[in-house]
């Protein structure tokens, strides 16, 4: 483990990976419980259009991706709020338009396949100092906002109707969550890649839901599972020469499987034993 940290690029990858491992489940828990698991995926494809815009205009791709993803997230949320029944249709329209723009812009920019694959699937070798600084700054902004708004986000996620009636500014809170999700996608795409960007928002939370017994413990366990997936995935990809993004996501999926089996085999059997004892 320590051997790989002798390399500068691995130090940057581990720092960026740990930041992503912290932020993704912290936002993911809200979007999963609001039954919007696919929004990260949709925003990932829009982020791809943002990266291609950056290549075309010759600007830093992470920044252009962030701007375009935030604008798209705000648009999706505004339309979803106006027509809640068509939320998934709105997401699909943005999703396909995003991928179409990405294909068009990257062909116009004549992007080489190495850069393309680095963004699509994540590449630890290509994480630069500028990437780490940007990821760090965005992560601090996301964490601070999350800290300030945590109890309101939980209330709105659990019971939007009562939260609205009790006087919370629901529209503003939903918009803030949409923007935080967009920022998280922009942060995560350098580590796990655009195509797997929502994996760390969804899989660690899904794993944690199998073994947790409160909202707080679900959040804490999801972050632990996510960080474990990042560390194990990066280590495996370094020593076994695997693609980093895919290895991290497969590790997270294996941790989900372990949590699922633990729940089915151990926790539910324990629960049944307790019921038998009471009978």
């Amino acid at each position: 483990m320590l051997d790989m940290l002798q390399f500068d690029f691995m130090q940057r990858a581990v720092v960026a990976g740990l930041v992503v491992g912290l932020i993704c489940p912290a936002i993911g828990i809200f979007i999963i419980l609001r039954k919007q698991s696919l929004i990260g995926d949709g925003l990932g494809h829009i982020a791809f259009a943002g990266v291609a815009t950056g290549w075309l205009l010759g600007i830093y791709p992470v920044m252009s991706a962030m701007v375009i993803t935030v604008l798209a997230a705000a648009g999706i949320e505004e339309l979803r709020a106006r027509r809640p029944a068509y939320g998934d249709m709105v997401l699909a329209i943005f999703f396909y338009t995003g991928i179409a723009c990405a294909v068009l812009f990257s062909s116009l920019a004549k992007t080489n396949s190495v850069s393309l694959f680095g963004y699509l699937f994540g590449s630890i070798v290509t994480v630069s100092v500028q990437d780490v600084a940007t990821v760090g700054a965005l992560a601090i902004a996301v964490l601070l906002t999350l800290g300030v708004m945590f109890k309101e986000l939980l209330f709105v996620t659990f019971d939007e109707e009562v939260a609205r009636i009790s006087g919370l500014p629901i529209k503003r809170i939903n918009m803030i969550l949409a923007i935080l999700t967009a920022l998280t996608v922009s942060i995560a795409m350098r580590v796990v890649g655009i195509l797997m960007v929502s994996a760390l928002m969804v899989i660690p939370v899904a794993a944690s839901l199998q073994i947790s017994h409160s909202f707080r413990s679900t959040l804490v366990n999801a972050v632990i599972i996510s960080e474990a997936a990042v560390v194990i995935g990066l280590t495996a990809s370094f020593y076994l020469n695997f693609a980093s993004g895919g290895t991290i996501v497969i590790t997270a999926a294996l941790l989900f499987l372990a949590a699922f089996v633990l729940r089915q085999v151990v926790l539910e059997r324990l629960g049944r034993a307790k019921v038998m004892k009471h009978c």
Binding site: L33, E152, L154, F158, D159, V162, A163, S166, G167
Partner: peptide, 26 residues
């Protein structure tokens, strides 16, 4: 306000205390 059928998702990972604490949020 207590709506009709307030618990829409029975698998929502939340404790009784966490729900009652929401009463203080607004």
């Amino acid at each position: 306000y207590v709506p009709q059928n307030p618990l829409r998702d029975k698998s929502f990972p939340i404790t009784v205390e966490e729900i009652v604490a929401m009463g203080r949020v607004a």
